[in-house]
Design a protein around this nucleic acid. Sequence first.
DNA 1: CGGCAGTTTGATGTTACTCAATTTAAGTGG
DNA 2: CCACTTAAATTGAGTAACATCAAACTGCCG
Lengths: 238, 238
Amino acid sequence: MQATSPCVTCPHRDLGFCGALLEKRIEESRSPQDANWQHYQTVTAGKQIAARNQASEDVFVLCSGWGFRFFQLPDGCRQILNFLLPGDLFSATSVFEQRFHFSVKALTAIQISGMRRAEIQSRLTANPGVLTALAKFCVAESVASDELLTALGQRSAEERIAYLFLHLTQRIAARSVIREQRYPFPLRQQHIADAVGLTPVHVSRVLSLFRERGIVELSGGFLQVFNFTELARIGSLN
Amino acid sequence: MQATSPCVTCPHRDLGFCGALLEKRIEESRSPQDANWQHYQTVTAGKQIAARNQASEDVFVLCSGWGFRFFQLPDGCRQILNFLLPGDLFSATSVFEQRFHFSVKALTAIQISGMRRAEIQSRLTANPGVLTALAKFCVAESVASDELLTALGQRSAEERIAYLFLHLTQRIAARSVIREQRYPFPLRQQHIADAVGLTPVHVSRVLSLFRERGIVELSGGFLQVFNFTELARIGSLN
DNA sequence: CGGCAGTTTGATGTTACTCAATTTAAGTGG
DNA sequence: CCACTTAAATTGAGTAACATCAAACTGCCG
């Protein structure tokens, strides 16, 4: 990880994404003498940023690019817990806990913003906007996690992958204008497999099926949705 | 649900379980005129307490008995998200969100305490102990959910069930003195199945296997652990 | 042009599901 | 306390979904 010059402004600060909003609220309320409350870093694609049990004084927000949060098991396999998009906190728990209970990797090249935990905590009671931003993130995180849990526990391979696509495309669309249902989508099939609890081989088969049936196509770092209705029918949890 | 006379004291208030602790901190900080900040209810076994999308002015803590939080799918199957033990908040998200994004059922006969959300929110900034208690619950909830997600995504039937047993016995032991590794355990095999994403039939087979191998035995509402080492070897995520 | 990572395809194996019948346990009313 | 009823658990046989293994193919980059 290499530290860059101060204050590359996070492009999502004004969009209301919880992590970025948190950052904004804190900056608004900072006193002039806090020069070092926050710093930016650039990380190359594929690099691990945080490891389970590692301690840090900082709370991180993803500013640009994609990352993912995961558990690494001793037998080598891993579970991806969620994907991090610009404006996301790594985890709401980091505001209270010094140690990560998870690991984080950069999926693409990314920029992250680290804010002093002590700063955030002291603003939490002082500035109501900070608490609100954190609460909002906390709720979103919890809902997403409950939904993924349901997908993994109760649904078939096709349904899980469709669910993942629906969930991610929604989040991507909230961050940037999407034309013709074509979403930037830097995941390899291995990532999809690790997120929904399948093997890459089986993910490949399901994707071929989706392609044949004209539902979605994943290639060249983009996800093209041809038949949203059908995708929603398969992947929706309701 | 039937309202009972005021102030059946929650027996776990002094044990530091996050929901109960939250209740305690709020009571400590309440002004004398807040007579109606909180109320208790008794619910019979099997009854549904909360439904997805339902709104409530209250935030609930389980005082006695067992409950569970779940998603109901239109095809009839359900995913149990977690089991609620005495001292647990239904969910940390309820402090901020008016509507439940999940449903809740009583597993045994239970007592619940409902606290006005507005009261809690106003105390969050005023009383640092309230925020700390909530943060602690939020972290525990998030860690548990990440672990279960990993178990469902990456592990076999035996491993998932062993994981569930380990997780629950730990939580039970934190609340009451356990002798001879015999834990009160009111779950039916159907509940285990819904929690770890298996069919009741397969749960039955795995439990038979555990019994034959002298690891654990589940019967008569109790879980008896005979070989903790082996159970931990199978179910541990590390 | 060669090398590598990622994807696809086929053949085979295993885990867990489904369906159905049977046994056991838990209530319930006489 | 015992017959009757009902829910829960067990067992067996057959099947489907997904995993595993291995080989071939594709696109990309030096």
